[in-house]
Amino acid sequence: MKGRGQNKGKEQKVQERKKLLIRIKRHKMLYLFILPCIVWLLIFCYAPMGGVVLAFKNYRYDRGIFGSEWAGLKHFRAFWISPEFWSVFRNTVVISGLKTVFCFPAPIILALLLNEVRAPRFKRWVQTLSYLPNFVSWAVVVQLMTAIFTPYGGVFNEIRKSMGLDPIFLMGEPGAFYPLVILSDIWKGVGWGSIVYLAAISSVDQELYEAATIDGANRWQCTWHVTLPGISATIGLLFIMSFGGILNAGYDQILLLQQPPNYQISKILDTYIIHTGINYGKFEYASAIGLFKSVFSMILVVLTNHLVKKYAEIGLW
């Protein structure tokens, strides 16, 4: 019985493979268009993965990645026992966590709000304006923030002075660091991030809105009971993927916003890599921290995927 079942399974697989080949042959032009992406993915994303062995080597410029001698887990151990490990790790997780809590829902909210705008010209205007900050580099954004918040003639402190308050060095206030990170991140990314949700909203069946309206649902109830469930799959997938980047707290933004008073809460893994790894040519150490980040992120993605799949029936695989 078992053998027959196995044979049947094998036959089924062969059939499926044949069907796939027939499909590919039939739509070969469309598949041809995927080819450059696959080649790109293989060359730029998969081939460099071989370089992770660098994390286990004592790298020498002349011998290259594969010729350098093995060092085992030496660099990982050096990182874990370094006095800064916990503070750097904690800061990274805190900043990323805050970004997940505040920055992740922001584009969803903006997309829902834009969906409710009935004047198409105004909607397009708002959309365009909200996309623009995405194209401004962090260097310029932080420069603007510095000009606004400087205690020496900045707009913010001029307003405070006109209200009879003393000027403050806001960019250097440790208490203001997280709000500045979150708010600037939202300002820069909310418009661009909303595109994918707007696309998802546009695919929600209009008949569902009509049915809900006939049932007496108001606009808020339509949003809550029709739009949100309609885009929940997209939200779920992006949420899972956002956990993959939990240790990517935003290197350039954080580096530029660092000020002496906030050093203790602003040192993150990426800035640590730059300082200890790249600046001194210790590629192997930088790679070890990078690999640690990747493995940790992978574990988080798998866990989140499992949980989201269990409770919301949405998953990456």
Binding site: M29, W40, I43
Partner: peptide
């Protein structure tokens, strides 16, 4: 014509992707 165009476009995309190599 369509096939040739598709083929050329795909090749161009691939060459573009590998331009830095």
């Amino acid at each position: 014509k369509k096939r040739v165009t598709a083929l050329l476009t795909a090749c161009a995309l691939m060459v573009g992707a590998l331009a830095g190599c």
